[in-house]
Simulated assay, not measured.
Amino acid sequence: MQLIQENPDLSAYLAADEAIDHDHPLVRRTAGRLAADVADSYEYARAAFEFVRDVIAHSQDSGDLRVTWRASDVLEHRTGVCYAKAHALAALLRAEDIPTALCYQNLGVVHGLVAVRFHGAWHRQDPRGNKPGVDAQFSLDGERLAFTPDPASNEMDHPVLYAAPHPVVLSALRAASDRPHLWPTLPTALRTQGGS
C-alpha cells in the first residue's frame, strides 16, 4: 500500500497540538527517561512503542471506563483506546524529533495507529496493546500490526498519513463521558462534511 502524506511539509509531523501535546512536562519527562536508556533514534522509537503498547493499558482490555485523548492524559492515567494510545506514541516520538503521522484502518469501526519516518520512508506501527490473538511488534522491515483488514468484509487500510488526529476521531473521543458512551459513537468512516 502506498502511504500518502496529507501535508507535504515534513515539519507538520513534528508539531505539537491539543491532542499530541509533546511540549507538556509529563510527555517531556517520559521521553527523557526513555531516551536515557538507548543509543539512537531507532532504539528510542522501539522503546517508546513498547512503553505505550505494554505500559499504557488499552481501556477495553483492562476494563477501564475512562476515555483519554490528549497524550499527556494518556500518560498520566496510563489508559486509552487505540486512538489515545496512538496520540501518546506520536507525542513521545515527536518529542525526540522523529516525524510521526496518525493513520487509520477500517475494521468495521475506524482503528487508530501511527506511522514513523525512518530512512526516507514511512513505517506503520500499532501500539494498541497485545492480547491473545494480537501480536503487534515495532518493525521497519515489514508491518507487524495488530490487525490485518479483511477486504471480503469491507475492511481496509486508509493510506493517508495525518499530521493531526482526524476530526471525526477527535470529536468522538472528546464527546464521550466514558467508554460505554464512546463505543456506540466510534466512527465507522473517516468522511467529514468536506468529504475527506
Results as ranks from 00 to 15, higher is better:
residue 64 D to E: 15
residue 151 P to Y: 03
residue 67 V to N: 02
residue 154 N to S: 14
residue 4 I to K: 13
residue 77 H to P: 01
residue 153 S to I: 01
residue 140 L to G: 05
residue 56 I to G: 02
residue 176 A to C: 07
residue 136 A to N: 03
residue 56 I to L: 10
residue 21 D to R: 07
residue 74 V to G: 00
residue 185 T to P: 00
residue 159 P to G: 00
residue 164 A to L: 11
residue 190 L to C: 01
residue 22 H to W: 15
residue 141 D to Q: 13
residue 17 D to H: 10
residue 172 A to G: 06
residue 10 L to K: 12
residue 155 E to T: 06
residue 102 L to P: 11
residue 169 V to H: 11
residue 106 N to P: 04
residue 118 F to S: 13
residue 18 E to W: 14
residue 54 D to T: 05
residue 78 R to K: 14
residue 78 R to M: 12
residue 16 A to F: 06
residue 35 A to S: 08
residue 110 V to D: 02
residue 60 Q to E: 09
residue 142 G to T: 08
residue 169 V to W: 10
residue 175 A to L: 11
residue 108 G to N: 06
residue 41 S to R: 14
residue 26 L to N: 08
residue 50 E to S: 09
residue 94 R to A: 10
residue 151 P to R: 08
residue 59 S to L: 05
residue 63 G to S: 12
residue 83 Y to I: 04
residue 86 A to S: 15
residue 70 R to Q: 14
residue 142 G to Y: 05
residue 153 S to R: 15
residue 42 Y to E: 15
residue 68 T to G: 02
residue 86 A to E: 07
residue 16 A to I: 05
residue 181 H to V: 12
residue 140 L to N: 09
residue 42 Y to C: 07
residue 191 R to E: 04
residue 27 V to A: 06
residue 108 G to C: 07
residue 78 R to Y: 03
residue 107 L to W: 03
residue 62 S to W: 07
residue 142 G to I: 13
residue 181 H to F: 08
residue 87 H to N: 14
residue 182 L to Y: 11
residue 158 H to Q: 09
residue 40 D to K: 08
residue 15 A to W: 05
residue 22 H to D: 03
residue 131 K to D: 09
residue 6 E to N: 12
residue 173 L to N: 13
residue 187 P to H: 04
residue 77 H to M: 12
residue 140 L to E: 09
residue 85 K to V: 06
residue 118 F to W: 05
residue 41 S to I: 00
residue 11 S to W: 14
residue 78 R to G: 01
residue 107 L to A: 08
residue 188 T to F: 01
residue 18 E to P: 01
residue 132 P to V: 12
residue 148 T to M: 07
residue 51 F to K: 06
residue 27 V to F: 01
residue 11 S to H: 15
residue 174 R to P: 00
residue 62 S to M: 08
residue 99 P to M: 11
residue 1 M to F: 09
residue 122 W to H: 08
residue 32 G to F: 01
residue 194 G to D: 14
residue 89 L to A: 09
residue 42 Y to Q: 13
residue 156 M to R: 15
residue 183 W to A: 14
residue 19 A to M: 12
residue 170 L to F: 09
residue 39 A to T: 12
residue 46 R to T: 07
residue 109 V to S: 13
residue 125 Q to H: 07
residue 136 A to P: 04
residue 50 E to K: 01
residue 176 A to D: 09
residue 11 S to P: 09
residue 174 R to S: 11
residue 76 E to M: 10
residue 27 V to N: 00
residue 174 R to N: 07
residue 76 E to V: 06
residue 137 Q to H: 14
residue 157 D to N: 11
residue 133 G to P: 07
residue 62 S to I: 03
residue 68 T to H: 10
residue 73 D to R: 15
residue 158 H to Y: 15
residue 183 W to G: 08
residue 142 G to M: 13
residue 196 S to H: 04
residue 64 D to H: 09
residue 30 T to W: 00
residue 179 R to I: 12
residue 111 H to S: 11
residue 142 G to P: 05
residue 152 A to E: 06
residue 141 D to M: 07
residue 195 G to E: 10
residue 171 S to V: 02
residue 172 A to D: 01
residue 139 S to Y: 04
residue 37 D to P: 00
residue 28 R to F: 00
residue 184 P to V: 14
residue 105 Q to F: 02
residue 25 P to E: 13
residue 175 A to D: 13
residue 122 W to D: 12
residue 123 H to M: 03
residue 58 H to S: 10
residue 170 L to C: 02
residue 98 I to R: 02
residue 124 R to N: 05
residue 101 A to E: 05
residue 91 A to C: 06
residue 48 A to H: 09
residue 133 G to L: 03
residue 9 D to C: 05
residue 110 V to M: 03
residue 176 A to L: 10
residue 27 V to R: 01
